[in-house]
Design a protein around this nucleic acid. Structure first.
Ligand code: SF4
Ligand code: SF4
Lengths: 135, 135
DNA sequence: GATATTAAAGACTCTTAATATCTGCGATAC
DNA sequence: GTATCGCAGATATTAAGAGTCTTTAATATC
């Protein structure tokens, strides 16, 4: 059980877009080069982020992707939901009434999600920025 | 990203074995029937649990599986580790020095594991037992 | 000791999901 | 109009999970 690589790429892309001065657009080929990916593959991931409303795409010449207006509210969990879907980690198909096992597993998962929801990408971006200025 | 079915089967098996009077052994075919599985498939899962020291196997005639001596200390996390391995959910192969993203993901995962570590199977087994007496 | 019973291990197939590429379409700037 | 770009669909390719079959080794019973 592991997060997909797409989630990793999505997180990096989001941070990168947040660091764009004035929230300007960046083309997929630049984002792909940065992460050593093929543009077509990354494009699929970016489409997911777009549909989730985390970034905004502008097609056509001089187009690209830019961070959404909700920039300061985007959490790690938002990105993960966009790439991984929002299904439960533990999904017993039977669902017995008042299942004790499911209870424990779901509660634990909730603990993880709470943390991921409380951590905002903007804070990471800011830290990265200040590190770059130092170095 | 989902827990494997094996983890579900393992959890059910563990609870079942804990409910055996006197911790007596149960054969794989009985455990398999209970969960509508093939004995050979379940056998692989049971071997993992055995190697993790959560259950004890006795081969040969009248053999089977019984719960380990550490019965009262076995947590959900122990079972999950046995079936899923103990690799991290978020595993970036690069591992940059002081990576901020990895930090957040690992911390969140830790929150989940803390909960899974604190929840003991024996408590679930006892609840199941008392429910059965009620019904 | 012979035999029946049972767990352990390895090879193997099947299915599914993730990964990745290629192609054509539609929107936009110039 | 044309070059540039994101979007969607089809299509490999790969990896992991799910599950079966067969053989081997250990044990109890007789
Ligand atoms: S007891 Fe819970 S986990 Fe087990 S089969 Fe029922 S619903 Fe699923
Ligand atoms: S910044 Fe962190 S997650 Fe990103 S490549 Fe480096 S180690 Fe991996």
């Amino acid at each position: 059980m592991r997060y997909s690589n797409a989630t990793n790429y999505a997180l990096h892309t989001m941070v990168h877009l947040m660091l764009q001065p004035g929230g300007s657009s960046v083309g997929v080929q630049e984002l792909a080069e940065m992460q050593h990916l093929s543009p077509t593959y990354l494009s699929k991931i970016l489409t997911k982020l777009t549909k989730a409303g985390l970034i905004v795409s502008t097609p056509g010449a001089k187009g690209g992707y830019k961070i959404s207006r909700t920039k300061h509210e985007i959490s790690f969990l938002d990105v993960i939901h966009a790439t991984e879907g929002d299904t439960s980690l533990f999904d017993c198909s039977i669902h017995h009434e008042g299942c004790l096992i499911e209870n424990v597993m779901k509660q634990a998962e909730e603990n993880m999600k709470k943390e991921l929801e409380s951590r905002l990408l903007i804070d990471i971006a800011k830290e990265v920025e200040s590190k770059q200025k130092e170095g």
